[in-house]
Design a protein around this nucleic acid. Sequence first.
RNA 1: GGCCCCAUCGUCUAACGGUUAGGACGCCAGGUUUUCAUCCUGGUAAUUGGAGUUCGAUUCUCCAUGGGGUCACCA
Length: 478
Amino acid sequence: MHTTVRTRMAPSPTGEYHVGHIATLLKNYAFAKQQGGQFILRIEDTDQERKVDGAVERIMSVIHQYGLDWDEGPDKGGPCAPYVQSQRLHIYKEYVDTLVKNGKAYFCFCTKERLDQMREDQIARKELPKYDRHCRALSPDEIQQNLTEGKPYVVRLKVPDAETITFTDLIRGEISIESGNVDDQVLLKSDGFPTYHLAVVVDDHLMEITHVMRGEEWISSTPKHILLYQAFGWQSPIYAHIPVFLNPDGQGKMSKRKGTVSAQSFLDNGYLPEALLNFFMILGWAPADQREILSLEEYIKEFNPAHISAKSVVFDMQKLNWLNGVYIRKLTQEQLTEKIEKYLPADFPRAQLAEILPLISERLVTLKDIESLTDFFYRPISHDKELLLKKADAALVEQQLSQTTEAITAITDWTIPALEQAIRTLQESTDWKKSQYFMMIRVAVTGRTATPPLFETIHCIGQAEVVQRLQAAQETIR
RNA sequence: GGCCCCAUCGUCUAACGGUUAGGACGCCAGGUUUUCAUCCUGGUAAUUGGAGUUCGAUUCUCCAUGGGGUCACCA
């Protein structure tokens, strides 16, 4: 028998979508595509309190911005619709009932106060906090009475006493956990919503998910899911727990505390989606030939989840920056022009974009760098006297500035070759040191020491403005 | 702390049990160049420690150490 591979990503609309989520989604997407299967998007909105308005739309939007898509999902529908858990409440209820009927789960009427107190005591006694199974001892009559009285309740999983729960992880091999370390997990909350654990198992089964690739943080709750699959008599999917991203400093799981984590913000900060995807591809995995620049198509062809490294990986910003530069330099002028549009400052002279862009395109690390790399073209500059006089005394610099001003003013044909000829002729007719002279002019015209090539830059700034800046530089050194 | 996972240059990764332990980013040096950047060349740098198995361990086993994850009516 040949079953179709079906993978899924199941975000929860509670806040910003994390780069780690995109990285995991990419793996699910690529594997499904590679196997000719389907990739499903499912919304896990079972937490009524943390639900954020508009989050679902933002998640879908950011996935699209990264150039990825799904085959079945809330907006597209599909054979397993609906794909939003809050619309599937009746389904979970039905399965919980079977569980209770079959003695695999039980009603629990414990109050929050009692649970809090219990946990507090356990911690004080240095025990591990765990439900004390108080309501497992309730008689059918007591349960019935509580129900009749309308007491709020949850449904808990009846975890066996001394059993070894084993499952196979595609990346790590066999993982075993003693049932004694597993809590009687709440499956159905008192508001009638399922917890993640119930919903994920029911939905993954009903949606015929064959491979679950999710974050490593789920390893310790996987036994609960295995128990549920057993309780229902279902076959569990193949698991691959993806290692977490560590902060760039290598300390702990990547967190907002230590910098940017939202998938959207990397885009907003001028990283190209292709570069980010490529970065996620090679973080923790490498193709057979070790190359590091990969297109999505190549990745889909070569990706093998079983070869993902099992260790958590540092989110190396320097490697990302390098990759982003590589991808920017691969763009044609037209493509770059189009992509950089939304990063242009309001006062950027758009008419000059076509002239300026080629001068700085290979200096861009992110698209957002456009502002800091070009502001001197169109914004007032200031002169640093020390920089102007760094390699020559005031008398010589004054002379250089005034003769350069004359030479530039004299140009009637404002082209780069004419400009270059005028300045080179001037330099060659004197004993001015080339490096000193060029650098001084650079500083006088742009206010900085690192710029695009001098003649192109001068040409771009314009004759009148350049003359003014040269004169201002003269003022500065007086 | 209990439980689980993990361990090759600073970082990410290669290496049928036999390699001068390879590549990439970063860093350093040189070349190109009027500066920066790009580009090219070269260099620096690693098998966490200890036992065992073996003729031979980066590779297999165990222990220690270190790092990470997780311990909710959140996902």
